[in-house]
Nucleic acid binder design. Structure first.
Lengths: 232, 232
DNA sequence: GATAGCGGATAGCGCCACTATCCACTTTGG
DNA sequence: CCAAAGTGGATAGTGGCGCTATCCGCTATC
């Protein structure tokens, strides 16, 4: 298969494929002449994976390059691959050191020990959690910690489901990749489901025929009235 | 309070504050002279909210502008505000129409009806869910639907917790804002917790002292070996 | 009355994910 | 056999986004 066909099959434009190769996301095709190369279905799969991590997972190209490099590494230390995969989201580098941040970190440390989680309070996930809780605190929603355990229950449940799934997939060759996919795309799935559940909840609250426009229907489908005109 | 103090209190640079005002995220200060204005603690709060939605929630400035505009609208149709808040993530506009997408949409429609959710299969959340499932299918993880109900259980549980929290907050003036905060930042909280639970799970699997470097510790803390050198 | 800060406006920057163009060179269809 | 289409490789450019720098004339403050 040559690059044009690869492009047609995956819907990714040819220049974009070349770009991914340049950035190390996609291995180059096998040269048959000075300027002719063939691509296998491994390339096709890899392209699908890249697009999924980009479009659905919201990862950045550089992050994907790291994850894929770790994934291709024969001595694949799974938790390192996952680390590379999970270290997205982690927005700002500097951890603020105001009262809210300190309190949030304490809450997180307590949560981890209370749950008996084998995780460090210094892990990126814990730092992100603390940042989110600190932001809520600053906004006067410090009481959110009251439902933190419900959230943690849900997270444990999901993690258990993930484990079961991976277990069933065991012995399949692409397991490491499966874990990455599950971790990254699973997050998108869970977020969508949460939002769906919220739609349901608010539909029940405000009932069918509440604020006009029939039930909840495609809630949130409304576009802004004006076509984005700011700054002028 | 003048702009410098506002900047000092929130940690947001003065030019950035001006930028937010220009973009309509922050109301301008009250003019006391032709070129002197005062800002209240409403401005301070709003700035914290903006930074939280930006840094923790990962929203874009234009989206935040929409949400805040809806929030300030006296005739606040809550589900529209939330719609504006939730319509992020929705990456690509065009829905692909391959076999996997169709199958995924069917799965989502089935899930919604099976659970009795009062939500439309055309809602953005459902579309996002379908996109994620379709991507998994394309990657050979169509079997993920087997754990979809576990995920849905968790999502329902979280939504219930959110409802309870909002309920307790009822009668507080900033309830609408609270819902927005809960929706957007709650997602970050849930994601962090899921990742923490994954760290815990993989620590239990690969055990303490598994692949060297002591337990799991700050799993995922490793930076890429080289300081980002590609493309040269 | 000097200095620091201000509101307002415009222009520019750095990053990112592409996209366009060009070249010399195959491959392919007629 | 030859022209048109396609290819690998390289370099430069684009558009969007979240700021950031600079300048202006003015005002509060010491």
């Amino acid at each position: 298969m040559r690059i044009g066909e690869l492009s047609r099959k995956t819907g990714v434009p040819v220049p974009t494929i070349k770009y991914y190769v340049r950035e190390g996301l996609l291995p180059p095709g096998e040269l048959t002449s000075r300027n002719q190369a063939t691509y296998g279905e491994g390339h096709e799969r890899r392209l699908q994976l890249i697009r999924a991590l980009l479009d659905v997972g919201g990862m950045k190209v550089a992050e994907i390059a790291d994850v894929l490099a770790a994934l291709d590494d024969p001595g694949r230390p799974l938790h390192k691959v996952l680390g590379a995969a999970a270290d997205r989201l982690g927005g700002a580098d500097g951890e603020r050191d105001d009262a809210e941040s300190a309190a949030a970190r304490a809450v997180v440390a307590d949560l981890i020990s209370r749950r008996g989680w084998e995780a460090s309070a210094e892990s990126p996930a814990a730092a992100d959690l603390a940042r989110a809780l600190a932001a809520m605190d600053r906004l006067g929603h410090g009481a959110f910690v009251e439902v933190l355990d419900d959230y943690a229950d849900a997270a444990e449940q999901v993690a258990r489901a993930d484990l079961g799934y991976v277990d069933r997939q065991v012995a399949v060759e692409g397991m490491v990749e499966g874990v990455v996919v599950g971790t990254v795309l699973g997050e998108a799935v869970l977020s969508s489901l949460r939002r769906l559940a919220h739609v349901d909840a608010s539909a029940r609250l405000y009932g069918a025929g509440g604020p006009g426009e029939g039930g909840t229907g495609p809630a949130g489908c409304e576009a802004p009235d004006a076509p984005r005109t700011r700054r002028e």
